[in-house]
Amino acid sequence: MNRYLPLSILALAILAFATLMLVIAPGIQINARPAPEGLRPYTEAEARGREVYVSLGCLYCHSQQPRSGDQAPDGERGWGRPSVAEDYAYDQPHQLGTMRTGPDLLNVSARLPSEGWHLTHLYQPRAIFDWSIMPSYPYLFDHKDTAGPGDVVVALPAAHAPADGVIVASQKALDLTAYLVALDRTYPAPTNGLRDHGYGSSEGPEPTPAEEAR
């Protein structure tokens, strides 16, 4: 191989082909699917909370993509039905995640709907689970002598409560909690939802190309 131009063109052509296969084709396929009826866009508070979730890097320990029962017992753990591409119609940036240092959170609200629980858990996870290795987020809360009007006081066991005064949630903590209690995609999956059926599927066979076209 002695020539620069053919080398460059072929190298770029191969990358373009990979981009077609991994980016463009799946993108067209995914974008053709409408948002499911059960899914609503985030409210303003939830969207702000999602920004907090993104900026603190929750993604690096929590996935948002329950697997199917054919592959893993995610459903039995209460993490929800296998998610489909349509479930993420309003997510930007996506937070699918690749790590489960902590549990999957796509449907965390379905099993933990209490705002108070999440505030306590964010302030000090070990106030609830002594085995947890999740960071605590004390800077999302304020330490006050007494709670003012409208303040949300965090319930804490004696071991983790301050010696005097109360812990109240900041706006960021309230927004983040609003996002967490909105994470519930347990509505019925759209028929022929788009996902990796490579482990077999309890929901019936993969749609054929012809069905897909319709």
């Binding site: 199917s68 296998p82 998610s83 591409a85 990796d196 490579g198």
Partner: peptide, 9 residues
């Protein structure tokens, strides 16, 4: 990186 996830098989 998305095996078993919500992407086309």
């Amino acid at each position: 990186h998305l095996i078993g996830g919500p992407v086309p098989t």
